[in-house]
Design a protein around this nucleic acid. Structure first.
Lengths: 230, 230
DNA sequence: CCAAAAGTGTTGCGATTACACCCATGC
DNA sequence: GCATGGGTGTAATCGCAACACTTTTGG
């Protein structure tokens, strides 16, 4: 029933849980924390926290991520709100899931200073508390859809990257093999990468050219109705 | 800060607002209510209510829709959670938006018994309270994406419908003209409709064949990896 | 000199698009 | 008999997928 004041309505705890994706050595990873409080103390969990009265959810997600990893200016996006009545046995809690994309290679030192948090390969991540595994699934589905329609992967790669790295990233996100030539041809046809004179020598004798994402050009193209589509 | 009990955390009001889509006379419509309480009394608003402690959000959305329209067994889906600090001037409220799809032709009598609610053409709907217009936008975007990848429109049409009605529905959702022959050819290629012997005589002298959606066949196809794609 | 990864184009096929005429009937 | 909406097929084009060999160089 709606009342003319809201006084009689139930209030609830609103949590934010973050599915933090990273990419390293051709593998998609997620960052997990070992819970240091009851219930489920010691178990692996998504990084989370509670919404405060004076902030919106986006801000809360940014604050929680920053607090537990030290990272700022990270791409985040709301995924879904989970509300099963007994999802948290301690108390009725609604949780809004956000996913974040992190370039591990550039940020790893910062993150791993924090103790009880750890990267897991997505494929062999542990069982998580509550409904966190479902949250991860939803976030992956979302990431996948996003990757097909936006050049989202750049958030997960260093500033300079090789075509092969980019391809491996898409393969990890989409969980399928892609053809090398077709992938490169398609990406080049978008014309949103800058080919550098530099080479990355770490993965082969011949060396592989490095590329950068041309954000400006991409934005202009989007405004002109360009549609990214892998 | 996460504490070992949640006692110190802020609690908030959690609302559910419903973007209710209908389709009649080739037009996509939304159902709105004139608010009968402060703040913003008398203004047009989405149909909404508050989450109760003992229900999850899906249940709350169903309850709220049923309470204000009398309808049951309606397709609903969570869209997004809105949390701007001052979105509701009366009190800090977070709102989870759901969209619903209703076949107006079949259900209209029930709905219009209720007094202060009314269908509006999407194109000339009034300005809504709070951030409700943004909610509608998000819901449309979601509906659009959904319509491209699932035969979602059947929720919006009567049990029996003509090809032309189906096409007009897609045109309304996608906000673009479609070619008559291409549309029918594509839809027939999916093979998920049952052509009836009956004709609808209301729109032309010749009459147009009626079709039904073959839910069973569709489900079987989806299980076999079929991918609906307009 | 050879192993290992990088780089590079072409072709066939299937899907999408564009397009125009006859049909049935109520008035 | 004519105006109105219903119904139907084909050809041209485009985008996607499949595919193999040469280059470079550290060891």
């Amino acid at each position: 029933m709606i009342l003319s004041t809201y006084n009689k309505e139930d209030k609830v705890l609103l949590a934010v849980d973050c599915i933090i994706f990273g990419f390293l050595k051709d593998e998609l990873k997620i960052l997990l924390v070992q819970r240091d409080f009851e219930p489920e103390k010691g178990k692996w969990s998504l990084i989370g926290g509670f919404l405060k009265k004076e902030e919106n959810l986006d801000k809360a997600a940014i604050r929680i991520l920053h607090h537990l990893t030290g990272l700022k200016n990270i791409y985040m996006e709301q995924v879904y709100t989970f509300s099963k009545v007994d999802r948290d046995p301690a108390e009725r809690t609604i949780s809004v899931a956000y996913y974040a994309l992190i370039d591990i290679a550039t940020h790893d030192e910062k993150i791993l200073k924090q103790n009880p948090i750890q990267w897991f390969n997505l494929k062999n991540a542990p069982k998580l508390i509550f409904d966190h595994n479902r949250m991860v699934e939803k976030a992956i589905a979302r990431l996948r859809r996003r990757a097909l329609s936006k050049p989202i992967g750049f958030e997960l790669l260093p500033d300079k990257f090789t075509m092969r790295q980019l391809q491996k990233l898409y393969e990890a996100i989409l969980d399928s093999k892609l053809d090398k030539r077709n992938f490169i041809n398609k990406f080049n046809s978008f014309d949103i990468l800058i080919k550098l004179d530099e080479k990355d020598m770490s993965s082969s004798k011949k060396g592989a050219y490095l590329f950068k994402f041309d954000q400006e050009k991409y934005n202009r193209k989007v405004e002109d109705g360009f549609n990214f589509k892998i």
